[in-house]
Amino acid sequence: MLIPLLLTGLLSGATPNVGDTAPDFTVKDTEGKVYILSEMVKQGPVIVAFFPKAFTSGCTKELKAYTARHSEIEKLQGRVLAFSTDDAETLARFKADLKAPFPFIPDPDGKVVESYDVKMPVATISKRYTFVVGEGRKVLKVDSGGDAVDPSSAITSCSQAKPASPFVAPAAAKETPPAPKAPAAEAKSKQ
């Protein structure tokens, strides 16, 4: 009786939920490019997609769907990072096979997988989870299992993320002051 309770406690816990702050990470993709989550979210939402194994049917279907809808994600200033515990060579072949336009991140030691608490109980393999992470690393959406195969809700969540603020030069802001609204309201109340 005690062992099932202990196992339940070990297996549950730290998976980020909507509204939580996503764990930060600094990772390299299959081409050696570095990605830092806390920097990426300053430009727009990031879809952190964990998948179990390259070249399997469910993972192929999921990543093909992200590939097919990638332009929609880009229009929303979103980016996709596809994580697996596969090695870099396997993921590079999988990415090339899919013609995926987004980075594949090898996590063979399961460090990021463990920080998101999406590791399968026995093996160092990721469960299928998708997190949409917005400004300040706030989790906007979480999908798991079969729900994570279809990117529709992740894309919808990207559209609800606060877009990156464009820089406005101080001089430009002074040149166009807002039009006063008070006189029009006063004129109406006097009538």
Rank of each mutant, 00 (worst) to 15 (best):
T156K: 10
P4N: 04
K64L: 15
F25V: 03
L11N: 13
D20M: 05
L63G: 08
M1H: 07
T30G: 02
F55Y: 04
P52G: 06
F104A: 05
S189P: 02
R79S: 15
K181W: 00
M120K: 15
A187Q: 13
E135Y: 00
A185F: 07
L7I: 11
A161L: 03
A82L: 04
D147M: 07
V113N: 05
P108L: 12
T90A: 09
R79K: 15
F104C: 08
V48W: 06
I36L: 07
A187I: 10
D24T: 14
E175P: 02
F51D: 09
A173R: 09
A164D: 07
A182Y: 01
D97V: 06
Y116Q: 11
A171V: 10
A65S: 15
D147A: 13
N17F: 03
R69T: 12
Q43D: 15
A187K: 14
K162G: 00
I3E: 09
A96W: 02
P166N: 02
V133C: 05
P183L: 08
P4S: 05
G32D: 07
K64N: 15
S57R: 14
S57E: 15
T67R: 15
S57G: 13
F104G: 06
V122T: 12
G9W: 06
A171M: 03
A65M: 13
G44K: 04
I155C: 02
D117I: 01
P108Q: 13
L91P: 07
E186P: 02
D107T: 14
P163Y: 00
K111F: 07
A161P: 09
D87T: 08
V80R: 01
L6T: 05
K33Q: 09
G110R: 12
V168T: 11
P103S: 14
I125Q: 08
A172E: 14
A172P: 03
P45Y: 04
A22Q: 10
P23H: 01
G136R: 00
Q43H: 13
T56L: 04
P108T: 11
A184I: 06
S152C: 02
R128P: 07
D97I: 11
S126M: 03
S115G: 05
K33M: 02
T124M: 13
M1D: 10
P103V: 13
S144M: 10
S84M: 08
R69G: 14
G146T: 05
D29R: 02
P151K: 06
P121T: 09
K119V: 12
T15S: 13
F83S: 09
F131N: 00
I73R: 13
K141L: 02
A68P: 08
V41E: 12
S157Q: 03
D86P: 00
F83C: 03
G32K: 04
T124P: 05
G44Y: 00
A179W: 03
A169W: 11
Y35K: 01
A14I: 03
I105C: 03
K181C: 01
V112S: 04
L63V: 13
C158V: 07
K28C: 04
K53S: 14
L140A: 06
P101C: 07
A54S: 11
L7S: 10
S153A: 14
